[in-house]
Simulated assay, not measured.
Amino acid sequence: MVNRKVSLFERWRAARIFAVLLLGVGVTATTNLGMQAHADDCAAVDVVVARGTHEPGFLGATIGDPLYDTLQQALPVSAGAYRVNYPADLLDAASLSRGTQDMTNHVIQQSEACPDQRFILVGYSQGAAVVHGVLGTGIVTALPGIYPLPGELQWKVSSVLLFGDPIRLIGWGVPGQFGWRTANYCAGGDPVCGGGIDPTQHSNYGWAMWPAAWFAASQV
């Protein structure tokens, strides 16, 4: 009976998060999930990006691609990038779980291959929920199959950049140890992160590229 109650509670939380995420469904795109990293494998900083729902582009046309271009100009050290391999599909019940697994496994593997490498974790819309799961945000880790980052690797995260974050809308932030390393951007009127009424604002984040890049550069 206890297990049934826990299961129903987890399903309710999952339904609530996905209901919010549905507001952020973008255009359908064809992407190559086999593409993994680009730039130097052992660059000083690895920019790990979880894109938004059906977001086109390699790292994500709305956030990841323009942000990485800006970061390369702002960072005082070399940078590489990794595209989190997950469905980014709200119709796939395992989407968030697979995203957290891939992001966490990537950080673990890179930490073994490149011990001095630091990480900038980036998430947009559904991808922001993935980052929350990796960081250990309670409302997300309560869901089945979430893979948080091991505690001994948390110090390697130099900064966290979130855009159009649905977890922000329901009143949750990143765990305290990541608070000072996190910048969370929500466009005015964005219904996904701020409860606004203008869906077009969910893709209006060009203004945040340089503030986010300078924030990340200050944390390296």
Rank of each mutant, 00 (worst) to 15 (best):
F18E: 12
L21P: 00
L22M: 09
L22N: 15
V27G: 11
T28H: 12
A29L: 03
A29I: 01
N32P: 00
L33G: 01
G34F: 12
M35Q: 14
Q36E: 10
Q36T: 12
A39Q: 13
D41N: 02
D41T: 05
C42A: 06
V45G: 04
V47K: 08
V49F: 03
A50G: 12
R51C: 01
T53F: 05
H54L: 14
E55P: 03
F58H: 09
L59P: 01
G60P: 02
T62S: 05
T62L: 04
I63T: 11
I63L: 13
D65W: 05
Y68D: 14
Y68L: 09
L71W: 02
Q72E: 14
A74P: 00
L75V: 09
P76R: 14
S78K: 07
A79M: 07
G80P: 07
G80M: 12
A81F: 08
V84L: 08
V84A: 10
N85L: 11
Y86R: 02
Y86M: 04
A88T: 11
L91G: 15
L91Y: 14
A93Y: 06
A94Q: 15
L96K: 07
S97F: 09
R98I: 00
T100Y: 13
T100G: 09
T100Q: 10
D102R: 08
D102T: 03
T104M: 07
V107H: 04
V107E: 03
I108C: 04
S111V: 03
E112N: 04
A113V: 06
C114M: 04
Q117A: 07
F119H: 08
F119L: 07
I120A: 10
L121R: 04
V122T: 10
V122E: 11
V122H: 12
S125Q: 02
G127M: 11
G127A: 12
A128I: 02
A129T: 15
A129P: 06
V131A: 07
V134Q: 10
L135Y: 14
I139D: 13
V140S: 10
L143R: 04
P144W: 08
G151C: 00
